[in-house]
Design a protein around this nucleic acid. Structure first.
Ligand SMILES: [Mn+2]
Ligand SMILES: [Mn+2]
Ligand SMILES: [Zn+2]
Ligand SMILES: [Zn+2]
Lengths: 145, 145
DNA sequence: CTCCTTACTGATAAATATTTTCAATAAGGA
DNA sequence: TCCTTATTGAAAATATTTATCAGTAAGGAG
């Protein structure tokens, strides 16, 4: 299902800002902040009001088309999200983020915690951090200087 | 090791603001924002400048005495952290947060993702969401009205 | 295709949140 | 007790997010 239909199904309209924000996030290899998205829109000759960026992100979050990526210490920004449930793996050097899935691997853990705590566990957020292949190469190159 | 020594070891000093912020977080059953911590300090007759709250949180984060709790959609706030590595389980009704550990459970997953993606995976953040026992009771009570 | 209805946008202003500066204070080792 | 200097709090500067509102345009009805 495409953006147009997804929006219309929710009683929303397909507009230029929504297209632009989505396509900027689709291009970006790293999580972007609202300010950063706004900046990109200007550089692409498709300026969008900063306020609309905020509003659009809210909509896209509700449609689960984008997600927020967090760091242990702070929030990194928004990334495009493919359909379904999944997590993100973020490079702590360059912030490049990619998706991965692993729902099954958490099922045991979640069941155990539910039993131990008395909480009913019904959701989770998992993020992995590491060094992406590109940054690994750069690091090797630096050592060989 | 107590706060005093921990601070001194890092070349830092033990001060009232640091004691107060820490003890407020120790009391609190839910994650607190800087503003909220500031408010608590006033109500406790131990007012601390808001700016100092920010500075103190930064220090306590570095000492790993507090952590940030995130929601899928936004950041919840700061919570006290016991020593060592662990995660948080947050009630989406009342925000009550408790710790749990489960490093082993993730080892397989992390190894798999590392192989699949080429990233060197060296860190992770996991949070579970659910309904705490108290909120479960309230919910039942409401149904029986 | 044209006409409405009303969701949406962008400009502006307002409200919040965070960071910077700097003189005065106090922690804690000598 | 006396220094040195980390730390605090008040104030101001920035940055971020939300609220308003009149004008615009998406898209269904006819
Ligand atoms: Mn966050
Ligand atoms: Mn862990
Ligand atoms: Zn990288
Ligand atoms: Zn609860």
């Amino acid at each position: 299902m495409d953006l147009q239909t997804k929006l219309n199904n929710a009683g929303l309209r397909m507009t230029r800002p929504r297209q632009v924000v989505l396509s900027i996030l689709e291009e970006a290899p790293v999580p972007l902040s609202p300010q950063s998205i706004h900046q990109h829109s200007i550089e692409a000759g498709q300026e969008i009001g900063l306020v609309s960026v905020y509003r659009t992100l809210e909509v896209l979050m509700e449609l689960a088309l984008v997600r927020k990526v967090h760091g242990a210490d702070g929030c990194h920004g928004y990334v495009i999200a493919s359909p379904g449930h999944h997590h993100h793996l973020v490079c702590h050097e360059c912030d490049r983020a990619i998706e991965f899935s692993g729902k099954e691997d958490l099922a045991n853990l979640m069941a155990r915690i539910q039993k131990e705590t008395g909480y009913i566990v019904d959701g989770h957020m998992l993020q992995l951090y590491g060094l992406c292949p590109e940054c690994q190469s750069k690091m090797k190159a630096r050592v060989n200087e």
